[in-house]
Design a protein around this nucleic acid. Structure first.
Lengths: 127, 127
DNA sequence: TATACATATGTGTTTTTGCGCATATGTAGA
DNA sequence: TCTACATATGCGCAAAAACACATATGTATA
């Protein structure tokens, strides 16, 4: 793996990506459920329009905080693997935000994940 | 010391405060020199107009990242005391930004600090 | 291929942010 | 009190960011 020097702009891009309610919530969820999630799940959990979720995910991805994996109809997003101290501390900072601030979202998220039809051959998300 | 519950907005305010080049540099310097600095010193070190430095400092202060102490003509700014995990990890994240990104500023900063006339009764900053 | 579902994007609008200029406020010293 | 230095702020502008609406793209399935 290359060790491309990060520039100041890259650090700023990370902070900027995290300075929005929706995006911070997405990161918090990804860190706390330790699962990849697809766009429509985030839409339901955060109650934000699909087109806005898509755009926010793009910004997080441009900041190298998340990555996408396409699976059939769905595009799943998950945390990017950590590659340096900076990212680790950023993760820890986000993790230190108490669940108190996210109870509603966390509840909805757990429900959503439970609805995933893992039984038969139908791949993932449920109704 | 009161333990006022932070809200999601407070965390966002911190990230937003750090998502600007000038402000991130100010925080990096404060963390790396372990000294309070006054506005005019920052102006010289970062080569940013005085009125903009003032404004950026205000934003950092509103995010509770720094505090001010007035001394004579000068207003010194220093890091706010840490009060929780979140702040600690944010500090560590900023500290993990390598000096490579700040060589010019760091040099000028050391020069500036050395110029402080601590000898006679004249209080602080030098020419 | 037609349809439904999932995701992304083009466009226009509103809000927010950062900056420059001018100026106000505040402090110390002649 | 007058002047110089240090800091803060009101105002207008330009760029960036966030959002809503419509629509495009992409995939699976009947």
């Amino acid at each position: 793996m290359y060790n491309i020097e990060k520039e100041m702009d890259d650090y700023i891009k990370v902070f900027k990506a995290l300075s929005d309610m929706t995006r911070l919530k997405i990161m918090w969820l990804l860190l706390n459920i330790d699962e990849k999630v697809c766009v429509s799940e985030i839409v339901d959990v955060l109650e934000v329009y699909q087109y806005n979720v898509s755009r926010h995910l793009r910004i997080l991805k441009d900041a190298k905080l998340i990555n996408e994996v396409k699976e059939g109809k769905w595009v799943f997003y998950h945390l990017s693997p950590l590659e340096g101290e900076f990212g680790q501390f950023v993760h820890k900072a986000i993790c230190s935000i108490p669940e108190t601030e996210m109870t509603k979202e966390m509840t909805r998220c757990k429900v959503k994940l439970a609805l995933r039809t893992k039984d038969d051959d139908i791949p993932y998300p449920g109704t």
